[in-house]
């Protein structure tokens, strides 16, 4: 068993270069089970590059990403065999894309979308898959009668919630989110954030959430990393960073949102 103070994920000195240009540089941090880490910064600051490198989608130029697997203990994700890595990505990890179309299969029903991960790890009982998909639909506040509908008939907010259900069905321990509220109107955003906060708490999920929206970061994350030009310029507890920013850029970022 993983002990609570043992890190789930350890990123060390991660650097991603695109030729001569910097994607992200010298990033190191640790993430513990149940912890939510927000990564904020303006577009082009390397947030998404960093997320892709951490989530085993793009091998970094330098540095290591180590993950506490359930069976083999701590492993470097880029040293694993591809089979192991892909298994990890569809069981213990989850990835919520900004655009639900990237994370859903649009040509199969909502139920099949949720069931896919279960079937991928060997579940072969239709009745169980279906009832589990149904209960997950309930957890993300989508009516049961939409179980057999195609995601293309869903609204944007529903698609995003379906994507979350589809990802969480295998009880992952680590969830990557890339701008999960992007493109949603504020009331839908608020409900989605509320839902996410509940799920994160109930399931004790560790989350790395990339966002340019400081309100989202404040609501969800425990800790915050601020990035600029590929580098982490400030790192600390969310309240601390947002209420008492030290770095000039963070001060600019915080002061650029409307205060009441």
């Amino acid at each position: 068993m993983t002990q609570i103070n043992e890190p789930l994920l350890r990123v060390d000195d991660l650097t991603m270069m695109y030729g001569d240009r910097i994607g992200c540089k010298d990033v190191s941090f640790e993430l513990r089970p149940g912890e939510v880490l927000g990564i904020v910064g303006e577009s082009g600051s390397g947030k998404s590059t960093l997320l892709r490198s951490i989530s085993a989608q793009q091998e970094p130029t330098k540095g290591t990403v180590e993950y506490q697997t359930r069976i083999d203990g701590i492993c470097d994700v880029y040293q694993m065999s591809e089979a192991q890595r892909r298994l990890l990505m569809r069981t213990d990890w989850a990835f919520v894309h900004q655009n639900p179309r990237d994370g859903l299969r649009m040509n199969v029903s909502a139920g099949a979308n949720i069931g896919e991960r279960m079937m991928a790890i060997g579940d072969r009982h239709y009745g169980n898959i279906r009832s589990n998909a149904d209960s997950w639909l309930g957890k993300v506040e989508i009516a049961s009668e939409r179980l057999d509908d195609l995601p293309s008939t869903f609204s944007g907010g529903m698609q995003q919630r379906l994507q979350i259900a589809r990802n969480l069905v295998t009880s992952p321990r680590l969830v990557f989110m890339d701008e999960p509220t992007g493109g949603l109107d504020v009331s839908v955003q608020a409900r989605l954030l509320d839902l996410l906060r509940g799920l994160v708490h109930d399931l004790n999920l560790a989350v790395i959430i990339v966002t340019h929206d400081l309100a989202v970061a404040r609501l969800l994350s425990h800790r915050l990393m601020v990035m600029q030009q590929g580098k982490v310029i400030e790192h600390g507890l969310t309240d601390q960073v947002l209420d008492d920013p030290q770095h000039a850029y963070t001060q600019l970022l915080v002061s650029s949102i409307l205060q009441n």
């Binding site: 896919e116 079937m119 991928a120």
Partner: peptide, 16 residues
């Protein structure tokens, strides 16, 4: 990598 879960997604759709 013997990742054949997708094949069952098709059968699931059929039954649904």
């Amino acid at each position: 990598l013997e990742e054949y879960g997708l094949m069952h997604v098709k059968l699931y759709e059929d039954i649904a």
